[in-house]
Amino acid sequence: MGRIREEDYAYATARVRAVEVRLMDDNKINRLLNMTDPQDAVKFLLESGYGADHTDSEKKAAENIEVLFDDELKNTYNFLLEILPSPEPVYLFMRRYDYLNAKLILKAEFLGVNVLERLSHLGTIEPEKLHEYITDRNFDELPEIFSEAIHESIEAFNLTRDPQVIDLILDKASYQNMLSDAMRYEDPFLTKLVKKLIDTANIRIIIRTELLGQPEEFIKKALIEGGNFPVGGSQEFSGQNREKLLQILNEAGLEKLSLKLAKAFENNHGISEIEKILDDYVISYFKPSKFAILGLDPVIAYLFLKETEIKNLRLIITGMVNKIPAEAIRERLRMSYA
């Protein structure tokens, strides 16, 4: 596929700029944080344009706020598909939900339960179809990386009866698929972004494996190749993983991230703080996109900002329903450059 020139994104960029204003700013987030009744919060979201394209969203949202968030994400993906000259960059991110669905379908199949209603509708493949493909073991319609990963995870599960291997194999393939899509699209911005996503996923894996004292071979199975810092091969993550990790990050030119992580390690912050650092790190990649006039960057940035916004809203509202102290919520809120 030929590379799309950045001028071709002029329309998409401008439309994104026009809708960006509707993202929640600090002011709105603070207002939400000060609310105590979840019903008020839902009303506030509906007034802010959530679930605008769905008629009965107010009723549904009152029952389950997740429906509202799902609809909003779906709207965002559809919006981007509509404005972009090519759907590929959006499919790249939507494919993550295909992998999610595949994991669910496989696990449910091995467990003998029905999950068809719980599958996500955000993927590129209809959940019903995907379910059919996987149940029939018919992978002709699926992308190569995807079908191979499903195949591999089925075999690995039959061998080990360990549900974790399904996640490990498909998660890895999901990132690899993103990377190959990004490279095929020949957009350096996308490739860099996917590499950053792989990096953060790897860091998450390394730190959590260490925190939980998982065996060494686990980490080797779990790490995802293709990021900015090398994994596997000569790199051994064991024992003092943290120092090793920081050193490797420094060597790979990710000093800023390494510095922040080092600080979090020193202050002995929990995993929640580290996850926030990682999420913020990805979002900070979009900082320059704020000033971009043309190109794919602002469009993808909008997608991520929207996802972050929904993440934050879920955090706030779940906290509100369960009466979690506002402080615990506030310290977990992700950075948003809206």
């Binding site: 999610l100 696990k107 955090l315």
Partner: peptide
């Protein structure tokens, strides 16, 4: 309970469902 609430607040329903459907 409070930890689960926190995890729930950080993950979507589908992600959580996927993570926990098959106990190890």
């Amino acid at each position: 309970h409070s930890r689960f609430i926190m995890a729930r607040a950080l993950m979507s329903d589908t992600h959580l469902e996927e993570a926990l459907i098959y106990p190890k």
